[in-house]
Structures are given as structure tokens and as C-alpha cells.
Amino acid sequence: MGRNITLGQYMPGRSVIHRLDARSKILLLIAYMVFIFMAQNFYALFLMTLASLLVVLATRISLNMYLKSLRVILVVVLITALFNLFYGNGKVLFEWWIFKITEGGLNNAVFVAVRIAALVLISSVLTYTTSPSDLTDALERLLKPLTLFKVKVHELAMMMTIALRFIPVLLEETDKIMNAQKARGADMESGNVFKRVKALIPVLIPLFVSSFRRANDLAMAMECRCYNGGKGRTRMKVLRFTRTDLFGLIVSLVIFAGVILCNMYLPQLVR
């Protein structure tokens, strides 16, 4: 435990997608999600799914990784599809007792399943190709306008950075404390759920105490390095929009236009 954790599942690489500015990736991801939801017929959805698959291929990350993320949501997809199967109008295809599968229901089921899969694929692209630090950095800059409404954007981003930094540290610490308590005869593996949860209290208390101690140390270390909030701060890595971003934007706009055209001129889905 602890040692092998991959946070945000970032996979370093040099592909086109990796080289995109983190800000454009976030914005484009949002746009893709919106358009996946906007697709109203199979043509539009097919276009968005195809686009997502092409983006996935362009990341040059092993497809197994994407399959893994799809497997996680397999149950959700199946349940949603199942429910949708029994909804809908149109020609009745199959009828048994109170269950009735219609053409619309079948359409719905397939549509929803494909839609969720496409959503998951495209969002995995963001987490796989962007390092957590770039992600927080980009979020800080994108949300900057909110400072006008007194939202503490810099502080939030800082908290995220520190949280990401300390998750592995705290996991390792939990492991150590658990071992220490086991060495004193604590039993954490037997008994029912309530017993096991209760057995975690001797782990959580030392963990909390040490976290506060760490926080105190960290605050001191940050002060030693002249940390004074976001004011007057510069960054080593400057995020910059490049031609790659422009290219990404143009390609995406073409796809989005395609979706709108499909929605407008091709037959609607029977539901």
C-alpha cells in the first residue's frame, strides 16, 4: 500500500495531446462533454465517439489503460442501459409479462451506453495526459476571474497542490501506524463491519495528530521560503497557447459543427 499509488493516473509522454496547454485541454474537455450530451441522433453521437476515439489514439497511451477506466464504469453503464431498455415508445419488439421492449427503448439503451463510454474516454484523456501540477496550475489561471467575486482561487489551488503532494505521504504513514498497532496486538482484520470500523480509531487518532504536526512544519517551511499568498507571485512554468492549441481548437470546431449539422439535418432518434 502507498508505494504503488498513481495519482491522477498521469502518464508522461510527448504526444500532440500531451503537448496541448492544460488550459485548452480543460476547456476542450468541457466542450466535448457538452457536445456529447447535445448529440440527438446516432449520426451525431457516432461523430463524437469517433472523435473521442481518435483523440484517445492520438495520446499514444496503451489502450489497455482506457479499457481499465471503462471497466470501472461497466456496471453503471449496464444498469443505466437496462433501465433505458424498458423505457421509450415506438414499435414493440418484445413483450413478456410487464416487460416491454420497444424500438425507442433499445435505441435509448444503446445511446446512453455509448454516450457514457465516450464521456469516460474523453475525460480519461485529460487525466492521463496532464500532470496534476499542470492541472491545478491551469485551473488556478482559468478560475482567476472569480477573484473578482472574492473567491480565493490561489489558496484553493495551493490546497490542491499540497493535498496531492501529501496523499502518498499520509498513506505511507497510515501503513506504519497500522503496523505499529498490530504489533501491539490490535486486531483489524476480523469481526463484522462495525467492529472493523471501530478498530480503525486507534489508527485515525495518531494519523490526525501527526497530520497537524506536519501541517505546522509545512507552514513554517513555507514561511521560511517567503510564502505570502498569491500576491506578487510568479511561476517558473509559463503556460502558453501554441500552434498545437490552435490546431486542436480548429479540429474540435469542425467536429462540433458536424454535430450541429447532424442534429439539424439528419432524422431524429425514435425514443
Binding site: 496534476p132 506536519r214 512544519d217 517551511a221 513555507m222 511561476r235 517558473m236
Partner: peptide, 19 residues
């Protein structure tokens, strides 16, 4: 452990200068 702020070595070293 308690005095490293960022999740990547070079970003942590940059922290003071950024401030």
C-alpha cells in the same frame, strides 16, 4: 517530508523563487 510543498522536485525548488 514536511518541508517539500510541490509534487515534483523542480517545482518545489522553484517555490521560494516564485514567492
Amino acid at each position: 517530508d514536511n518541508q517539500i510543498v510541490a509534487g515534483i522536485v523542480e517545482e518545489d525548488v522553484a517555490f521560494g523563487c516564485e514567492n
